[in-house]
Every structure is written in C-alpha cells, then in structure tokens.
Design a protein around this nucleic acid. Structure first.
Length: 679
DNA sequence: AAAAAAC
C-alpha cells in the first residue's frame, strides 16, 4: 500500500497549534445573546417548531410550554410533591422527609456557609471507627449501632493516600466562566431557578469539600440547571452537548441528597441481607442509586468520577460490567454498595444471582439515555426498571442524560419518568462549536493513504481517535498502521475486556497516541488531549456522528474532526449537512449538491430520517440558518479531485494545508473560541 | 449490515 507524499506535512500541525492558541480569548461576542439558528431572522417560533419553540424570550422558561409533547405533562397526574410520596417519604428518612418547599427555599441565595469551611477538619485525626477513610474502609461491611451511622451528612476522616489517588489526576480544573450566554430550555411544571455558583444551593459539607478538591470553580451550564432540579427531587430529561459536564451534573446532586437523607431503609435491608437470600449467599446489596451506561468503559469512567464525590462519605460506589471477573465484582459488592454503576447485562446477572436488590433504589440515572432506550437496550432496561423490585416511577427519582435525544426516544423515555422537567442546554443533538468539522471526499481505496497523510501532519503530543464501522475493519486498520510504523492500538467489542481497558489506558497515557475504535468508544468517554477525531468510516446515523466527534473539543478545549465521505455515505448526507450548517462549519459545495439531489431523488427519506422524524433535529433549524449560498456549484470536489493532486477537497485544493486557504474555511474564530454556543 | 451488552 503506497501513499502519496504530503506536500506540506505541517498543514495540520499549524491547525492544531492554532487550536491551542487562545486560552483566554476575549470571546468576541460573548456578551451577545445567543439566538438559536432556526429562530434567526424570525420574530417568534412557530408553534409546530419543536425544540426551541415559543416562549423563550427570557432565555429561561419557568412555565410549561412544551409544544412537542402536546400536553404530555398535563395529563400525567399530579406532580410528585403534591402527592407527598405516599407513605414512602418519612420512613426512616428514606426521602429525608424534606418537603418540597424546604428544599426549594434553600436555593434562595441565603446560604451563609463560608466556602473556606469545607473540610476544615483536615488532619484533625480520628473519627472513631471511620478513621480508615470513606471509600476504602468506610462502611467496611460492618454495621455498628452508632448514631453517626444514620447521619451521613458529616465527612469521615481524610485519607491522604486515597485523596491523592482520586484527585491528583488534574484534568478537572475546568473553567467555564465564559460560558454565560447559553440558550437553555427548561420545561415542565414548577421548574426551580438555576444556580450560578455551587454555593447557591446547600449541597453539604462533603460535596463542597470534594468539589474543592476537584478544582471545579463554577458549575457548567448543564450543572447550573440540573443540580437544583435534581435537588428538589424532580425527574429530569437533560440534553447537553458532549463534554459539557453531564456526569457531575447528576453525581453531585444525587450524592448530596444521599448524604443529606442518610441510608434510610437501605441500611436495614443491607443488615438483613444475610437472611434474605438463602442459597444465594450473604449480603445482598440494596443500592440507593443506580446509574446505567451503554458501554463497560463508560461505566468504569462514571464509577471513577463517583469515587471522587464519594470521598469522605459513608457512600460506597461500586461498578459491575461484563467481560470482567464476576467473582471479584461480587466481593466488592459485598463490602457494601450504595451507589452502583452498571452495564445492563451484568446487572441483570447480579440481580438473578441475588447479589443486588433494587428495592430501595431511590435514584435511577440513565446516562446516554437515548442509547439505553434504543432497540438493542430497551428490553433490558425494562427488565431492570419495570419488571423487578425497583420502586415505580413517582416513588423513585429518574434522571436521563444525553447529548442527543431523538424525538421517538424522548416519547419512549416518558414511560420511565413522572412529572419530569425537560432540560436542553444548547440545541438537542447539536455539536459544540469548539470542534472544527471537516468533511472530505475520499474514495474507499484512498482512505488509508489519506489517513497516513493526516497522521503525519499531526503533532506528536496530541491524541488521534480513528473511528471505523466494523470490528474487522478496526483490526485490519490497526494492523496496517502498525506495519506502517505508527504507535497505535484498537478497541472494539471482540477484544477481551482486559485488552479493551489496556488499549484505552495506553491511548489516554499517550503511549499509543492513535486509537482505532468502533462505536464502542463513541459515547461518553472523556479522554483529555484528543485533538483530532477522524471518521475513517462515517456512521450511518447522525447521533453517532455527534457523539464520536464529541470525543474532542471537550470542556472548553478546541478540537478537530475530519470525516471521510464517499458514495457509501449518502444516507447521512442531509443530516450531516444540517449539523455542519448549524455549527457554522464550512460546507463543501459537493455536499450541498448531494443533499439537494438526494432530497429530490428520494422523497421517502428526504428529511424523514428514522430518528429525527419528529423534526426537532435535522430539518427545522436549517431553513432560517442562513445556509451557505444555496446549492450552486457542481460536485466539484469530487469531479475535480479524483485521485490526483487535490484529492477531492472542494475548491480549496491541497496545497497550503489540508483544508482550505485559511485553514478554517472562514468559520473559525480564534478569539471567541471558548464560547461554545455563542457567536 | 454493524455495533453494543451476560454467561
């Protein structure tokens, strides 16, 4: 396999270098209020325009105006808090007995706690039997009749070694201070006001101490809205862009509530665990909170994050997922499990083995919720949530998070939610504008050669994630790159779990700065320093695309995503075009032409995408987004490109650098780059 | 058609 020599091997380097240039850009335009693309040049949204529909003039909508659901909230019975939780709330403080108003009022900014007080007992010495520290020893499987046991709001003793292990990773010093003008939609009855600071809501000593240790300064946009909603015990369907802090947006308030409310019934159940389970053995565990994720590595990552916020608490997080030694996972569970992160299959296994009971699971989180509810996963989710002992909706609190949420899945999701609040930070399914998206026409036979060109132009210190469509394709591309002398590895579902985790670690650490991956790595994984995502094969649905490229450009950093497009990808043409336009990316003229042809050829699908048929995604924002010059031009990139010199770059050619004469197609704004959603 | 997720 030969490949064409790169004219200017530094082209991409220059781009990547430029991406790093602007840590403190003045954010030209950050002061302007964001106007969602489909509302630009319009006075008001039409009633049938889903997503960002009417009533948004104040930026934040407190009242119910969800035109998409057409009364969906209305007929679903009284709000949770009006029902007073039946007899559920006051038993052993299971729900803390805090009435809505009390919790609500605590947002009022009359929090007189001084931030310097958190964890000020550091080094103060022993706290009796908890001196071994919250995570590794706390709880320990023994249950003393100690009054402290039911007060989970006070921190356990510090543990220097553990603290160092949990918080030395860095990578969390996220500064979102410039992310002010965010378009946010929050619909549902009695939505609480958002917070501006972690101090605006009483989250307790333990959480505040751990927030300090993680160096979080201010809440990210999704955290500002989700935290108070979760704190007042409301169900939530939350959509926020990739890399915007969703994990902490549920871990922080859920754990805060658990600390405030104490173990409740779960404690007694755990004590009785030995008697409940007969032949299955001892110590069935009754987690108070369950978090479900679609891949094993994501479950592991969420678990690691939960350990941070559980530090110095009585809460013991656990994780269970397939492909790993179940005996070891069971032993970990038996040491105590209050917060469980799991993939569905292994959890069902654990339930059937009598190791896990969901009877007291008051908090259910579906991360990547649209994936968890799609065809492959839905039956397992129903098995876990509806066909076992988990409290029914309305009794438990259910929270769903994702960057994408197709309309049909939203409707399906309502089966699991009660009187929920719908939260959209940024537009549902859109991409971060911090990611420069490039689409290039590359024939199948040229892909490898083209990939080498891109890799050769990439700086040594940056990570490149290459997505392919099949497991076989991943193996074969990894082989190829290895033979070509690149330090690469791969991750896909046919590799052993050990190899998968090893590959991810090697990639994370930079030992293998190139990772070839299938869809297994598309969602949720937070890997710092991924500068470039390459879609060697484009996925067939746009949500997958959004999640894949979201592995870069996280937490305010900039990233680059390059997608190889050819005849095989016609199915994603229109949705891809829409995404590019919305994210103000350069659109190759051939792509516009293709989309135009496609629309006129196949009315059957034209905009009738399986998943976006509800329309809040792909089609609706485009009509008013200004487009980019109509459909003029032919498929120049393709016809002029061929295999020769310019290799199919629409117009721009290949000379100066990879993409276009200015490198960013005129859309890239270095000075304002930290402003994700603004102009 | 493929990917993910239990043994």
């Amino acid at each position: 396999m030969s490949h064409v020599v790169v004219d200017n091997p530094h082209g991409l380097d220059q781009q990547l270098a430029a991406l790093d240039l602007n840590p403190d850009g003045q954010g030209g335009g950050t002061g302007r209020r964001y106007i969602p693309p489909h509302l630009r040049n319009k006075e008001a949204a039409k009633n049938d325009s889903p997503g960002w529909d009417g009533g948004r003039t104040n930026g934040f909508v407190n009242g119910f105006h969800d035109n998409r659901t057409n009364g969906g909230f209305g007929g679903r019975g009284p709000p949770r808090n009006d029902r007073g939780f039946g007899g559920y709330e006051n038993k052993d403080g299971g729900w803390g007995g805090a009435p809505r108003d009390a919790a609500y009022n605590s947002f009022g900014g009359r929090n007189d706690r001084s931030k310097s007080n958190f964890f000020n007992d550091r080094g103060a010495g022993s706290r009796g039997r908890y001196e071994r520290g919250g995570f590794s020893g706390g709880g320990g499987g023994r249950w003393a009749e100690d009054s402290r046991e039911n007060d989970w709001s006070k921190p356990t003793a510090p543990n220097e070694r553990l603290e160092h292990e949990l918080f030395s990773g860095g990578n969390t010093g996220i500064n979102f201070e410039k992310y002010d003008d965010i378009p946010v939609e929050a619909t549902g009855s009695n939505c609480p006001p958002h917070i501006e600071s972690f101090h605006d809501v009483d989250m307790g000593e333990i959480i505040m101490g751990n927030i300090n240790l993680t160096s979080y300064t201010r809440p990210t946009p999704v955290q500002k809205y989700a935290i108070p909603i979760i704190k007042i015990k409301r169900d939530l369907m939350a959509c926020a862009q990739t890399g915007s802090g969703k994990t902490a947006a549920f871990l922080v308030p859920v754990l805060s509530q658990i600390y405030a409310d104490g173990p409740g019934e779960a404690l007694q159940a755990a004590k009785n665990g030995g008697q409940d389970n007969g032949r299955y053995g001892r110590r069935k565990q009754y987690p108070i909170s369950l978090i479900l994720a679609p891949t094993r590595e994501l479950a592991l990552q969420i678990y690691e994050e939960a350990r941070k916020f559980a530090y110095r608490s009585h809460v013991r997080p656990c994780v269970v997922y397939g492909g790993a030694d179940i005996g070891q996972q069971i032993r970990e569970l038996e040491r105590g499990c209050h917060l469980l992160v799991a993939t569905p299959g292994r959890l069902v296994d654990m339930m059937e083995r009598g190791k896990i009971g969901l009877d007291h699971c008051n908090y259910l989180v579906l991360d990547e919720a649209d994936r968890m509810l799609d065809m492959g996963f839905e039956p397992q989710i129903r098995r876990i949530v509806e066909q076992d002992t988990m409290p029914p909706k309305g009794m438990r609190q259910t929270m769903m998070f994702s960057a994408t949420f197709p309309k049909e899945i939203q409707i399906l999701a309502r089966d699991f939610l009660e009187d929920y609040i719908f939260l959209a930070v940024g537009r549902v399914g859109s991409t971060s504008e911090n990611i420069t998206q490039k689409v290039v026409w590359v024939e199948e036979n040229d892909k490898r050669s083209f990939l080498l060109d891109l890799l050769n132009a990439t700086g040594k210190d940056s990570l490149t994630l290459v997505f392919v469509e099949t497991k076989k394709g991943a193996d074969s591309l990894e082989d190829f790159l290895y033979r070509e002398g690149y330090a690469c590895t791969s991750i896909h579902g046919d590799r052993s779990q050990r190899d998968r985790e090893e590959a991810l670690n090697q990639f994370r650490s930079g030992r293998c700065p190139i990772l070839v991956a299938t869809a297994v790595a598309a969602r949720g994984l937070d890997i710092s320093n991924v500068k470039h995502v390459i879609n060697f094969d484009l996925p067939s649905d746009i949500e997958e695309y959004v999640h894949r490229i979201g592995r870069t450009g996280r937490v305010g950093n900039l990233g680059l995503a390059t997608s190889f497009f050819n005849d095989k990808n016609s199915n994603i043409t229109k949705d891809l075009l829409d995404i590019l336009v919305e994210a103000k990316q350069e659109v190759p003229s051939w792509l516009e032409s293709l989309a135009y042809e496609h629309q006129h050829k196949s009315t059957s699908r034209g905009g009738r995408s399986k998943r976006f048929s509800g329309g809040f995604g792909a089609r609706d924002y485009r009509q008013s987004s200004g487009g980019s010059g109509g459909f003029a031009g032919n498929r120049s990139g393709r016809s002029a490109g061929g295999h020769g010199g310019n290799r199919g770059f629409g117009g721009g050619g290949f000379g100066g650098n990879f993409y276009s004469s200015d490198g960013y197609g005129g859309n890239y704004n270095p000075s304002g780059s930290v402003d994700w959603w603004g102009n």
